[in-house]
């Protein structure tokens, strides 16, 4: 564990708490893509089911895995049951096949062992890199977002960004390189570049998140 990974994980944790807080205080899931949230459940379940068969890593690791599976399922419950009327599928139109298809194909080709569990792990890495796209697509369609939604996305983006110095640190301190995680992680962080630009230049100065026409 190093400081980049710790703060990355804490940022990830914070992003989920921000999202739950937003939904519960506004009693609405307006502006949140159900598809992105459903993809995160798929990501966490396919990656963290290794709790059932892989060797134990740490209490921290186990706790976080359980938290991410549990909280992402809870968010789906909030969106589809508790505050269902506030969820508008008509603007959440990104096609999931475009994300699931490439993730399956990539996982079958690029994995560390051609076994069910390792292909599943690789699938979860590729899917996580793409899972934010329905949410970003929705932002682009609506052209604006509530500040709290942008804070959620910023915390989520910060988590991915912090994993990059973590990998550099691990490369120099342990000689560890994980090409699958690194390439997918860089792609995932890259998807946030436009968002971050507007977040830093507008939202943090108290302006509305609005995309240029």
């Amino acid at each position: 564990m190093n400081i980049f990974r710790l703060f990355g994980d804490l940022s990830h944790l914070a992003s989920i708490l921000i999202l739950i807080h937003k939904i519960q205080t506004s009693r609405s899931c307006r502006g949140i893509s159900f598809k992105t949230q459903a993809l995160y459940v798929a990501v966490f379940v396919t990656r963290y089911l290794d709790l059932l068969y892989a060797e134990h890593v740490s209490i921290y690791n186990t706790f976080m895995k359980l938290f991410f599976i549990g909280s992402s399922c809870y968010i789906l419950y909030l969106m589809k049951v508790r505050f269902r009327p506030t969820q508008d599928p008509s603007i959440d139109t990104f096609r999931l096949e475009y994300l699931l298809g490439p993730s399956v194909v990539l996982a079958l080709i690029f994995n560390y062992t051609f076994s069910f569990t390792e292909v599943l792990w690789a699938f979860s890495i590729y899917l996580e890199a793409l899972a934010i796209l329905p949410q970003l697509f929705m932002l682009q369609r609506t052209g604006e977002a509530e500040a709290i939604t942008t804070h959620y996305l910023a915390a989520l983006g910060a988590y991915r960004a912090l994993y990059i110095p973590n990998w550099l640190y691990r490369y120099f301190s342990e000689g560890t390189v994980d090409p699958i995680a690194v390439v997918a992680g860089i792609v995932q962080t890259g998807l946030y570049v436009d968002f971050f630009y507007i977040y830093f230049t507008k939202v943090l100065r108290g302006q509305k998140f609005e995309l240029p026409a």
């Binding site: 690791n61 895995k65 991410f68 569990t117 994993y163 994980d178």
Partner: peptide, 10 residues
């Protein structure tokens, strides 16, 4: 089973 070098990450 060869696992990812970073499978201890989240």
């Amino acid at each position: 089973n060869k696992r990812s070098p970073t499978h201890d990450e989240l």
